[in-house]
Computed example of a mutant assay.
Amino acid sequence: MQRDSRISFVVLTYNEEKHIARCINSLLPFAKEIWVIDSFSTDRTIEIAEGLGAKTVKHPFENQAQQFNWAIRNCEIAGDWIWRVDADECISEECGRKVTEAIATCDEDINGIYVNKAIVFQGYKLKHGGWYPAPQIKVIRKGYGESENKVMDEHLIITSGRTIYVDGDQTDENLNDLTWWTDKHNKYASREAVNMLMMQYEMDADAEGVEAKLFGNDAERKRWLKVRYARMPLFLRPFLYFLVRYIVKLGFLDGKLGFIWYVLQGFWYRFLVDAKIYEMKRDFGFDENKLKAYLNGLCQTSR
């Protein structure tokens, strides 16, 4: 007998009235229920979500990982499977259909599903530079997975069993302008600076969920490369990162909009992270012990 393949979706929101209807409408054909975990939006996010049948809960935001983990531990999730989708994302009909088919027929020890992460920047879908298809675990069996506890660049992990890959797109297409984008990434850079220092000083062992493996899956390989990146000299590494993405991985084939993306995401953002790291080190007189004590304090308050 076929198992129930309907899914409980978890969507984290804050002031997402521009995106939330598009997101939820893409989920509805495959949803047993949709949970919107809102960080006290001041716009119409909740009104729109509830109007489309979503269940909404308000909870203070600390970071993406903790917000998602709070949701799966505290909400009365009915589905046997949980699919995490950001508010500015949507899933293709093909992806939803393939995942539900996989859930209905997969082996009992399959507890996680990889799907493609696609990025659309100012209306253009990136195809090169290593940005696509970039498979990530987005679907987990309830009780067998969670988000790894990282302040930035967190991934879903499974606690036991195996994973499978479904060739379908979960598309990230934010509709806000570049002023909003750069403001958001300025805030991201502050969190990423802490994340990079934690990796550099090997202080994030208890937060690790995705193993760093050169010959592992896409997420494991990226984690392996990021660990090496964290040990490279400040300000040199953004140049190398941009060159690898834009030249070696053929990002230049993504045209003018791709060029804007690779400069902003592949150089400007990474350079800003390094500048914030340098600022923190300078503020602590380049005393590694003082900086580690500060980072340890941040970890304690975020738990």
Rank of each mutant, 00 (worst) to 15 (best):
residue 82 I to P: 05
residue 127 K to Y: 02
residue 133 P to A: 03
residue 74 N to K: 10
residue 201 Y to D: 00
residue 61 F to L: 07
residue 85 V to N: 05
residue 25 N to A: 08
residue 190 S to N: 07
residue 9 F to T: 02
residue 209 G to W: 08
residue 300 Q to S: 13
residue 9 F to Q: 03
residue 118 A to L: 10
residue 133 P to E: 11
residue 76 E to M: 04
residue 170 Q to P: 00
residue 6 R to P: 01
residue 169 D to R: 02
residue 122 Q to F: 14
residue 278 Y to D: 09
residue 96 G to Q: 08
residue 62 E to A: 11
residue 229 Y to H: 14
residue 286 F to W: 15
residue 113 I to N: 07
residue 120 V to L: 00
residue 293 A to R: 13
residue 112 G to M: 11
residue 136 Q to H: 13
residue 181 W to I: 03
residue 47 E to W: 02
residue 244 V to F: 01
residue 262 Y to E: 07
residue 119 I to W: 04
residue 154 E to M: 12
residue 257 L to G: 05
residue 170 Q to F: 09
residue 138 K to P: 02
residue 131 W to P: 00
residue 266 G to N: 08
residue 4 D to Q: 11
residue 222 K to A: 11
residue 138 K to A: 12
residue 218 D to A: 14
residue 210 V to P: 03
residue 158 I to P: 01
residue 64 Q to G: 12
residue 298 L to Q: 10
residue 10 V to P: 03
residue 217 N to P: 06
residue 293 A to I: 12
residue 184 K to V: 08
residue 82 I to W: 05
residue 285 G to K: 10
residue 246 Y to K: 04
residue 9 F to E: 01
residue 99 V to D: 04
residue 73 R to L: 12
residue 57 V to A: 14
residue 174 N to E: 09
residue 274 D to W: 05
residue 40 F to Q: 05
residue 5 S to V: 04
residue 279 E to A: 15
residue 108 E to T: 13
residue 251 G to S: 06
residue 104 A to S: 15
residue 226 K to G: 00
residue 147 S to I: 00
residue 66 Q to N: 13
residue 201 Y to P: 02
residue 161 G to Q: 01
residue 73 R to S: 15
residue 8 S to E: 03
residue 54 A to R: 07
residue 302 S to K: 12
residue 194 V to N: 03
residue 20 I to S: 07
residue 31 A to F: 09
residue 210 V to Q: 07
residue 244 V to N: 10
residue 66 Q to R: 15
residue 263 V to Q: 09
residue 22 R to F: 04
residue 101 E to V: 03
residue 112 G to L: 08
residue 140 I to T: 13
residue 32 K to I: 06
residue 55 K to R: 13
residue 56 T to V: 15
residue 267 F to C: 07
residue 245 R to E: 14
residue 204 D to N: 15
residue 285 G to H: 08
residue 303 R to D: 09
residue 77 I to S: 08
residue 25 N to T: 13
residue 267 F to I: 09
residue 122 Q to T: 06
residue 264 L to V: 11
residue 182 T to W: 12
residue 31 A to R: 06
residue 298 L to G: 02
residue 80 D to H: 06
residue 201 Y to L: 01
residue 83 W to T: 04
residue 23 C to W: 03
residue 250 L to E: 10
residue 37 I to R: 07
